[in-house]
């Protein structure tokens, strides 16, 4: 895991996000009713969810690794990834509600994707609560790793599968045409995909910073014992 001390991918993340900010405002977008210029929110709202799913994926990956080989470091990676992922979740939900207020009428429409996202949030809050409720460290790491392996598929189903089966206001779900099919032209892809990568890298970066702080804290704790 020496890459977390390297700088190049952090610069790459910053450059990609800066590119998506400049491109996101200036690149021409399809003219659509209701959405109008708010279609540009796509470049800033969706990448937050991408960053979140990347962080939660890393978390579950390290939870599995912990169960295979009980190394305390893996547990720290798992918990810090979830911590940062939840921040991105809140930002994603907030920007979504802001966007919904002006295109769907109200911030909260009880849209199936919104409801599912809320449930997924509770699932991950429960992960953190569960962690804090177990005193003994190894037990905590093991129980929360097992819980995380159950939580992750629930999140994926809630955010990416269930909304597509019902009627959702989100594009690409239910009876709604996907952005990808009709509206997302190649110019938009040119900005959207780099912004996915950029925000994911920024999210991972913040998670590694928190992880490194935790490593120091643990070391200090061990020295004091």
């Amino acid at each position: 895991m020496s890459f977390i001390y390297k700088s190049w991918w952090k610069y790459l993340g910053v450059v990609l996000v800066l590119y998506s900010i400049v491109g996101g405002f200036l690149v021409p977008v399809p003219e659509l009713p209701i959405l109008r210029e708010t279609i540009r929110n796509l470049y800033f709202h969706v990448p937050l969810w991408m960053a979140m799913i990347v962080l939660f994926s890393i978390s579950v990956f390290y939870s599995i690794r912990y169960l295979v080989q009980p190394d305390d470091d893996f547990d720290l990676v798992a918990v810090e990834s979830v911590n940062v992922g939840i921040v991105f979740y809140i930002l994603g939900l907030g920007t979504g509600m802001m966007w919904a207020n002006y295109t769907w009428g109200t911030p909260w429409n009880n849209d199936i994707k919104q409801l599912c996202a809320a449930i997924a949030f509770l699932v991950y809050c429960a992960y953190l609560v569960l962690r804090n409720s177990v005193e003994e460290e190894q037990k905590r790491a093991k129980i929360s790793a097992v819980y995380n392996i159950f939580a992750y598929p629930i999140l994926v189903v809630m955010v990416f599968v269930l909304p597509r089966m019902g009627d959702s206001l989100h594009p690409g779900n239910g009876g709604n045409p996907a952005f990808g099919k009709y509206d997302l032209d190649s110019m938009m892809r040119l900005v959207l995909y780099p912004s996915f990568i950029g925000w994911a890298l920024i999210g991972v970066w913040i998670a590694t910073l928190r992880y490194r702080i935790r490593l120091i804290e643990r070391k200090r704790l061990d020295e004091n014992l």
Binding site: K10, L18, V22, I202, W205, L209
Partner: peptide, 19 residues
């Protein structure tokens, strides 16, 4: 655009300084 770019760049610089 420039304003938001500066905001984000500032946050990035701050992250680098924490790093």
């Amino acid at each position: 655009v420039a304003t938001i770019a500066i905001v984000f760049a500032g946050i990035a610089v701050y992250l680098f300084s924490i790093d």
